[in-house]
Design a protein around this nucleic acid. Structure first.
Lengths: 143, 143
DNA sequence: ACGTTAATGAGAATGATTCTCATTCTATTT
DNA sequence: AAATAGAATGAGAATCATTCTCATTAACGT
């Protein structure tokens, strides 16, 4: 339960934070912008400020509760951290995000970092393409 | 020579554009922000506006002359396009950028996209770590 | 050299995110 | 359960990167 997750971070357990985690937790899309969270909570009748959403997301990220991704398109998206690391493929038409994990890629990355003399701390791999939905493939592209 | 590159894109060959390409071409760092280019040209006595820099970079990108990367840290960086595709590893302390290419990773990506039903159009893989410079490894990390 | 048209520079405008600050809430102490 | 210290909140201002607007200037085919 989110309550405990929050407590473990040293952050105080507040209504806005709980609602935000709930929102992230039950989202079909799993990858939400700060504004999306803000709007959803507003529409649900919550009283919340956009500043609070950004602030809390940053704290969640620092606490490892949430991951921030910078896909193309200006706005960062946030994803509730559950389970192990994975990378993403994003549809350039509808924005759908799929996740994947590939041990072969991870292994090559470690080898490359080592060869270049880096201590690897993090990485982001994002593929962009056209997903299998009817309107997504074979457009003449306005990405 | 940049002159010809520019001409081929259909863009007019102007002083600001040539200076920008020159700047990108002779940079030690190879990965420059728009502001860095702007400041370097100003300091070199050129008369140029920041708007022009952004505008031209966007055009260069569309023309394939330049690649835009969104590393962590707000500002996009631009890199003169020369040679084939590659990915990046960035030092989280000093900002150094190294490039690499790995066919095994590329191949896995194509396979994964296919398996997920995506037509792969693009991808970005960036690793973050501590490079081998004396002050970069083994810090207690303020990244 | 001329004229058409694209390119430029300055500053305003925008969009995302962060900051400020007075008020409210949490969790801990009486 | 009331008191309290400090963290959290919401509103709006502020900031940062980037884009837009528009009057002026420069490029280049004729």
């Amino acid at each position: 339960m989110e309550n405990q997750d929050l407590r473990n971070t040293g952050l105080k357990v507040t209504v806005p934070r709980l609602k935000m985690l709930e929102c992230l937790g039950k989202a079909q899309d799993r990858h939400l912008t700060a504004e999306a969270i803000y709007r959803q909570l507003l529409e649900a009748g919550e009283e919340i400020g956009l500043a609070t959403v950004y602030r809390a997301l940053t704290q969640f990220e620092a606490a490892g509760l949430v991951t921030r991704h910078h896909f193309e398109g200006g706005q960062a998206v946030f994803e509730l951290e559950r389970g192990p690391h994975h990378d993403h493929i994003v549809c350039i038409h509808c924005g759908r995000v799929e996740e994947f994990y590939d041990e072969a890629i991870e292994k090559r990355q470690r080898a490359i970092a080592k060869k270049l003399g880096f201590i690897l701390r993090d990485h982001t791999l994002t593929m962009y393409g056209e997903c299998s939905r009817p309107n997504c493939q074979g457009q003449n592209d306005e990405s």
